[in-house]
Amino acid sequence: MLKKLCIAGSFVLALPALALEVSSPDIQEGHFMAKTFEFSGFGCGGDNKSPALNWKDLPAGTKSIAVTVYDPDAPTGSGWWHWLVADIAVENTGLAQGAGSTGGKMPVGSRSFNNDYGIKDFGGACPPVGHGMHRYQFTVWALPDAKLPVPDNANAAVVGYTLNAKALAKKTLTATYAR
């Protein structure tokens, strides 16, 4: 939708701003994820594959992308970080299925941080049996820096804090899972 703007007494049409879009052929907003994306360990027996993610319409000034996966429903009092990766060059428009899993191919120059499983790889869904439906928030962050200004050993809270402080835009795709 075009908007009219009044500039110095004259009306001009302004083009709409592009909004960051995130999609996936593997997961859909509000839908249950396949067992392929369940963790392998902690009593879970999935394939621990990271789903494919695609993004477009990055805001002006974006110099890198970050991707996080967070479960706000984990019974920890502070949620559960499943994946944190930053410093993805803007030339990339997505990640293939399994890119963040053991043996996967992440973009050159990207950095992964320890998740709450204590690993740098993607850690799939693994809610406690009978705990009900959990939400898994796959968030793509557009950032103004080529390198997120945190040390390589930064914990999830520091990475999350810095992403929220720096983001030019972010978009979340929320899938669900239960056991």
Rank of each mutant, 00 (worst) to 15 (best):
1 M>N: 07
3 K>M: 05
9 G>Q: 03
10 S>K: 12
10 S>P: 02
12 V>E: 07
13 L>T: 12
14 A>M: 04
16 P>I: 02
17 A>Y: 02
20 L>M: 08
21 E>C: 06
22 V>I: 13
29 E>Y: 00
29 E>V: 00
31 H>G: 06
32 F>N: 05
35 K>E: 14
35 K>F: 03
36 T>H: 11
39 F>N: 05
40 S>C: 13
43 G>E: 11
43 G>P: 09
49 K>R: 14
54 N>E: 08
55 W>Q: 12
56 K>I: 12
61 G>P: 04
62 T>P: 05
63 K>N: 13
63 K>A: 12
64 S>D: 05
68 T>I: 03
70 Y>N: 00
71 D>F: 02
71 D>L: 01
73 D>Q: 10
74 A>I: 03
77 G>D: 14
80 W>M: 12
81 W>V: 05
84 L>I: 10
90 V>P: 15
91 E>F: 00
93 T>C: 05
99 A>L: 01
100 G>V: 00
101 S>M: 09
106 M>G: 09
107 P>W: 01
109 G>C: 01
115 N>K: 11
115 N>Q: 10
118 G>Q: 06
118 G>N: 12
120 K>F: 05
121 D>A: 13
121 D>M: 12
127 P>H: 10
133 M>P: 08
137 Q>M: 11
140 V>G: 13
144 P>Y: 07
147 K>W: 11
153 N>Q: 14
153 N>I: 10
154 A>L: 02
157 A>W: 07
158 V>L: 15
159 V>F: 02
161 Y>F: 11
161 Y>C: 01
161 Y>I: 00
162 T>P: 02
172 T>R: 00
178 A>I: 07
178 A>C: 13
179 R>C: 13
